[in-house]
Amino acid sequence: MVNVPTAVWINERGRIVRPNEVAFVDNRYKSMTQLEADEYLNAIRDWVANGEKSAFVLSEQELKGRIAPQNSEWAQAAAEFGLAEYLYHQGKSAASISHYKEAQRLNPDSWNYKRQAWALSDAERDYGTNFMKEVQKLNGKPYYAPRQLPEIKKQK
């Protein structure tokens, strides 16, 4: 989860049926996002009414396509991040920086590692960048999981 508002749907058995994605539930940012909140709210209502039969519940194949499996570098990145978090919360922020950097190096696509590190420090001083600069480098490509509701259901 690297931005708000986003949401995950979890069914009665604790199984994820829609992984994290953009989840606007009103239209206050519609002029910026072009996203209609009603479409998402209707999808939630459909899931509540139809459960596993809802077309918004993703199949195993679709879930696999949206959730990337871990590899050894990402697992090491997670360990470096965990260590950095521990050090930071122990008041050792200077010591935490090299481990945040290592987590970012090992998993450069994770915006969790970037945003957390930048938010807890003087990003320009400690990381030579900042959030807005990095977002601009993406040229409009979202750094978070976009909303992907099925086309046919948008007309519901």
Partner: peptide, 16 residues
């Protein structure tokens, strides 16, 4: 395993 030498902290993470 992530290790901070200066503070002697060792972090063992979950395997992939």
């Amino acid at each position: 395993v992530a290790h901070d030498v200066e503070t002697a902290v060792w972090y063992f993470g979950p395997r992939a």
